[in-house]
Write a protein that binds this DNA or RNA. Sequence first.
RNA 1: GCCAAUAUAGCUCAGUCGGUAGAGCAGCAGUUUCGUAAACUGCAGGUCAAGGGUUCGAAUCCCUUUAUUGGCUCCA
Length: 646
Amino acid sequence: MKITLKGNQREFEKGISALDMAGQISQDLKKKALVAKVNGEKVIELWQPIKEDCEIEFLTFEDEEGRRAYRHTASHVLAQAVKNLYPKAKLAIGPAIENGFYYDFDMEEAFTPQALQAIEKEIGRILKKNDKLEKFELPRKEAIQLMEEKGEPYKVELIQDLPEDAVISLYKQGDFVDLCAGPHLGSTGKVKAMKLTQVAGAYWRGNEKNKMLQRIYGTAFDSKEALDAHLEAIEDAKRRDHNKIGRELEYFTTVDTIGQGLPILLPKGARVIQLLQRFVEDEEQKRGYLLTKTPLMAKRDLYRISGHWDHYRDGMFILGDADDETKECFALRPMTCPFQYQVFLNRMRSYRDLPMRLGETSTLFRNEDSGEMHGLIRVRQFTISEGHLVLRPDQLEEEFKGCLELARFMLQAVGLEDDCTYRFSQWDPNNTKKYEGTPEQWEEAQNLMGSILEKLDVKHTIGIDEAAFYGPKLDIQIKNVHGKEDTLITIQIDMLLAEKFGMEYVDADGQKRRPYIIHRTSLGCYERTLALMLEKFAGAMPLWLAPTQVEVMTITDRANDWADEVASTMSMAGFRVDTDKRNEKIGFKIREAQMDKIPYMVVLGDKECEDKMVAVRDRKGNNLGVMGLDALMELLHEEVDTRAIK
RNA sequence: GCCAAUAUAGCUCAGUCGGUAGAGCAGCAGUUUCGUAAACUGCAGGUCAAGGGUUCGAAUCCCUUUAUUGGCUCCA
């Protein structure tokens, strides 16, 4: 039988197992191979016999699919350990995920940290025992019967959802049996290093109406060293957590009596956001945007027109009794659209008025569920660089491109561009309750956006059921230090609200036409952007955004006057300067300045005083030498210019 | 909203079996005026998140609420 391996053909005895095949190629491969891929499609276990000519690729821990099989087997080991220690625990599902795996259990008793330790010990025993994994298949009925006997109602439910004629595959290791499609490693001992990382609640089948199960997260690596390196990397990432350093460095804080998701921006945080806002507003002005300022709340009547009252009411803060129609009822705005559209509606518009690009630094309020808040990333009140472009159909593509270019320009300016991915967020035709409009309208808008994305060659993933209730979105996604993904920037084609609000323009032929609308943000919401920048730079903001750019310190009182002069000259020149003239614990102050991530430190003593010079150090503690004040300011100007706009 | 953990001085954290609160750093006052990672002396600082309960007695045990954290579900 002829087997193709990495492009080379080789002869093997018919019916040989993949593992033996690997062994004949090299002992090293036999050791490293985890599973095998047949004809570039199906991934099989190594114990399976190869019966005909085909192409085989051996997958190791280096391969994504190899790692998945490895961690999937690890999740079975976890389930086995839990069943050994808690026979009453019911098994749900346990897949491999990015960087690890989890398994969901239904159990009365909560998994405590001590319990987790005991489970890890049991896992160690199972790995040592090195049971072979065996695959067997049962007809649907028998599979259900087996799982009923074993008292696994969730498994029964899973099988029942499979097609009538499906042959169900199960895996057995020792006396532990699990419903599973595989593929798996040959034996439990193949898993070299496993660690349980955390316990969490998770709804059965991801539906909040279902019972909440207990999920144990874990990870597995092909060596103890790799596992330790991974755990250390996670710890390292957490040290950059904006929610920790943002509070430590006094960018923001929260107060119990103000409430969840309502952070206080301290002077540093407020300053950075002000700088970002100015940057965005100035850039938008250059690109032909008109500035608007619209109210933060409106009567429920407005939201009835826009559809928010039907589709977004739970997300809104309502002032007054929503159900009492005899009284006025207001709601804080969760989005700017229906407000900013009024600018267009102010008078009859001509086709010559289009494109009309409206921009606003807009504060929004969303009544997020109490468990959703996270530092500055997920809050209940936030300010976003919001905007709407009212367009003729022939302008849509060009303007969409303009929005994308603006977004990329902004991301580059703040240094986050390389960390972002693109997602084309579409509606779910099976979940029409959530959305306004007809399937035809959705089809049209999505096709339009799809073809623009193709034309602009934007690499993207597709997100089904991720659209806004009024239209599809291009979401620019970014991950925080915990690996959780959030939308930083969004560009949306909104075809429904224009209709609802009766927006029209008079075309060249004198006919009234419905405009297209692009709903977009330049830099997303400022709180979130600040959070991700803090994480990206570990608190060391680039000079153009640093709340304090220069700290002036004296080491003797004789330098105080000169320090004042330096500080005031630099302030007048537009730099953000802090002075500290306590001239004591200078080493401490320098360390503190570095901790606070202050880009430049100026140290003044008798010598500098006499020569009217400044001794300069950068944030890494490098001594840049003694220079004139003009030279320092020149240096700073250059850095600001290069960082802000590349 | 759901599952779990946590909440002690400005910060980081001790506080045993239930016996009424402790350290380091920061702060303040004085001394020191010194050249690069915490100078010396002293002082002050706490309804132990809030409320209720059990108890002779609660930071400690129980309940409720609030906030914080990690997930789930949602979402910028």
